[in-house]
Write a protein that binds this DNA or RNA. Structure first.
Lengths: 123, 123
DNA sequence: CGCGCACACTTGCAAAAAGCAAGTGTGCTG
DNA sequence: CAGCACACTTGCTTTTTGCAAGTGTGCGCG
């Protein structure tokens, strides 16, 4: 069941990871979910806190909603908030794992390559 | 855009997650690392197993190498293999967390949104 | 009632990244 | 020396991302 994805073929494998990235692999998706882990937020708040272009934000919110990761909560008059579904909240683990990976841990077995300074947003 | 962080301003936050995505957030990056978790592989193998465009693969391998995630092992004559560094291997946790998230767990409380079938490579 | 304002998005267009196909260089091997 | 496998490059098209400005809607106020 679901196993393989491309059985008995020399073709590319199809992993669960690819399926995950299909949903949250787009440019600002995980950052948006991360913000929402703190609780429901409104469009304007997300935009200001992340610095994400407004059209991208609108697109991502629609996609993530369709994927069942978040949903819109109608607020007063014409305002609304975005909140994670259970499936969206389950992204806390992967997100924290990524955060831990990125966090420079002092006292660990430092190795690999010397850190090179960067200075620009996601990607 | 907001390059160089935005300290002590009302501007966008700069999370560790963003730093992680800066390194492994590009289109095929995590998939490449996932393959490499099984051990060192050669260029052609990666390309065939993932179905990634060859120019993209070359670019990602260079970027991931510069980020200290993997390194090139010279093999016989002009062939080489790519292997994860310790830092790259540490991505196993985030990757497995994402895989678990994507894995349809039978018996769970179905919720969020009805699954919509897809049929195409990442993104 | 009409005006301005905040909020939540669209729209239009330019720049960057991803994708496809074909080509290049290198070192065997026949 | 021709042919072949391997590891990439190069040239061009398509898709995605980003920026800036515009649209619609519902108050709050004079």
């Amino acid at each position: 069941m679901t196993a393989g994805g491309d059985p008995a073929a020399g073709g590319p494998e199809w992993s669960d990871l690819a399926a995950a990235l299909e949903v949250v692999g787009a440019r600002w998706a995980l950052l948006i979910v991360e913000q929402l882990l703190d609780g429901p937020q409104r469009y304007g708040d997300l935009q200001r806190r992340l610095g994400v272009p407004t059209n991208i934000l609108a697109t991502r919110l629609r996609e993530l909603q369709e994927a069942g990761v978040l949903r819109r909560l109608p607020l007063h008059h014409n305002t609304r908030a975005y909140a994670l579904t259970a499936r969206g909240a389950a992204l806390r683990e992967p997100i924290e794992a990524l955060r831990r990976w990125a966090t420079p841990r002092s006292g660990g077995p430092g190795e690999g390559a010397p850190p090179a300074p960067r200075a620009s947003p996601p990607r």
